[in-house]
Design a protein around this nucleic acid. Structure first.
Length: 487
DNA sequence: TGAAATGTTGGGGCG
DNA sequence: ACGCCCCAACATTTC
């Protein structure tokens, strides 16, 4: 018995893949993806992510084929399917990269026990993180709940390894085991809503590297400033590639280092901001791994009792980009159309749902989960609890984004709004961010009738702000109980 | 990785 | 020349 079964999950790549590299040195490798439709931990794959996974699996199969291999697709329980594949090809071991979502860790342990009970070896090697979420610890040995000290601690650790190259050739088993097709997973949308996604993204390892190279060739050197302007392609847009493991974070890390080698201190600082964003990704994984209930429960338990509102019309208006606040609506429509939203705008729309509409952050988390191509349980949870003020390093309750001034600040000429809210395209910039304050004449000459072409604001900002402050002050006045959820 | 209210300062218009 | 007011600009505090 020789050879290895490689269990692919969220590491859909061939380069910088320690488990694959190690397996290639030992003999034949049988790459397997096992689909279990129920998903994990109550978060079944969202629609946009399913679209991505479909394409990513096809790309991976093609990449493997170019290296003399292929991807075996199975449907069912990984413990059963992996053992069956191993038996069919006569493999002695099964290997995978680690994941750190709580349900994935439980799954990994279960599969490992089941595999080892059949007499096969099971080996976990590498992961989609640069810093082990259980090894990064404060002076007192606890997990971090604040980003800055967390990231300082990460930077004090050994630097991320230089990425491994993809194996030129992946040794194939003597005979390929049976498998089904990617088609059979039925991941593609049944009605064609995915044109916007297809026009925006190229899932797969090659697409990931194309995007990384384009980013480090230019935008990364202005990242610190340009990342806040949603009409500019100043961010990397690597998040979905990183989520599915088409790209490893250390590949992005080292590419950014190379991009600022020998640059001025000011440029180096701009690029460091990008690595800090990779740090936020690590921080999200750290928090979820160490506080495993936070994907469904606020880290600050007093928020569990908060009297959130449940206004279905408000929720729907927010989801569809019909709140009457152009900057918010632009973001929500960009999300709906492309499966992605600029991070500056994510903060604003999240603040709007939680603080202006006083809706439970979980409503937002679920909507993002279904619509984002980069939907990642750790990052999504961190982001929403940050916005909700109920999580790690969270925005204090009184930090309420003004959707008008945020638009004026970060989309001053309205390019972003015009792109995603076309019915306002002809409204002059002075009144674009608050069209309800524009003169009827200005609106008429822009071809807009409020309440018909574009909604009036569904809530009044000043009033919503005052109500949120009053409601949130009530529970925030009481000091939290840090430590309650430790261990 | 806020916004708004409140306080302070200083230039300039003006009687 | 002087005091007064206005107000923009900036700083501080409060939510």
């Amino acid at each position: 018995m020789t050879g290895t079964v490689l269990w692919y999950r969220q590491d859909l790549r061939t380069s910088d893949h320690p488990a694959l590299a190690a397996a290639c040195e030992r003999g034949p490798v049988t790459p397997v993806f096992v689909w279990h439709p129920s998903g994990e931990g109550g978060w079944p794959l969202g629609g946009a992510a399913a679209w991505w996974l479909d394409r990513s699996l096809r790309a991976l199969d093609a990449d493997l084929s170019r290296r003399g291999s292929r991807l075996i697709v199975r449907i069912g329980d990984p413990a059963v399917e992996l053992a069956d594949v191993a038996r069919a090809v006569g493999a002695a071991a099964i290997t995978c990269s680690r994941r750190h979502e709580p349900s994935a860790m439980v799954e990994e342990e279960r599969v490992q026990s089941a595999i080892e009970a059949t007499g096969l070896r099971f080996e976990r090697r590498g992961s989609n993180l640069m810093f082990d979420p259980f090894e990064v610890r404060s002076q007192t040995g606890t997990a971090y709940k604040v980003f800055s000290p967390f990231w300082r601690a990460c930077l004090a650790r050994p630097a991320p390894d230089v990425p491994l190259p993809a194996p030129a050739r992946i040794p194939a088993p003597a005979a390929w085991p049976a498998g089904t097709t990617v088609d059979a997973l039925a991941l593609r949308p049944r009605i064609a809503w995915d044109a916007g996604l297809a026009g925006t993204w190229t899932p797969g390892e090659a697409g990931a590297h194309a995007r990384l190279e384009a980013f480090v060739a230019g935008p990364v050197r202005r990242y610190g400033d340009a990342r806040d302007i949603p009409s500019v392609a100043g961010t990397s847009a690597l998040s979905p590639h990183l989520h599915f493991g088409e790209l490893s974070p250390r590949q992005a890390w080292h590419a950014s280092l190379a991009a600022s080698a020998g640059a001025t201190p000011a440029t180096v600082a701009q690029v460091e901001k990008f690595r800090a964003e990779l740090g936020w990704r690590e921080f999200g994984a750290h928090v979820l791994a160490n506080f495993p209930r936070t994907s469904d429960d606020p880290l600050r338990p007093e928020f569990r009792r908060f009297p959130w509102r449940t206004d279905a019309a408000h929720l729907r208006a927010w989801q569809r980009g019909r709140t009457g606040y152009p900057f918010v609506d632009a973001g929500m429509r960009q999300l709906w159309h492309t499966g992605w939203m600029h991070n500056r705008v994510r903060m604003v729309v999240a603040s709007f749902l939680v603080k202006h509409l006083l809706m439970d952050w979980m409503h937002g988390a679920r909507w993002f989960w279904d619509t984002l191509v980069d939907a990642d349980l750790a990052s999504n949870t961190l982001g929403w609890q940050w916005a909700g003020g109920c999580g790690a390093d969270a925005a204090p309750y009184f930090r309420i984004f003004n959707p008008v001034t945020q638009g004026e600040k970060f989309d001053p000429d309205g390019t972003y709004i015009r792109r995603w809210v076309p019915e306002l395209a002809r409204v002059p910039a002075e009144c674009l961010h608050a069209p309800w304050e524009a003169s009827p004449l200005a609106l008429a000459s822009a071809g807009v009738t409020l309440g018909e072409d574009y909604p009036r604001p569904i809530v009044d900002h000043a009033r919503a702000r005052a109500e949120a402050l009053a409601a949130l002050a009530a529970i925030s006045a009481k000091p939290g109980r840090p430590g309650t959820m430790d261990g």
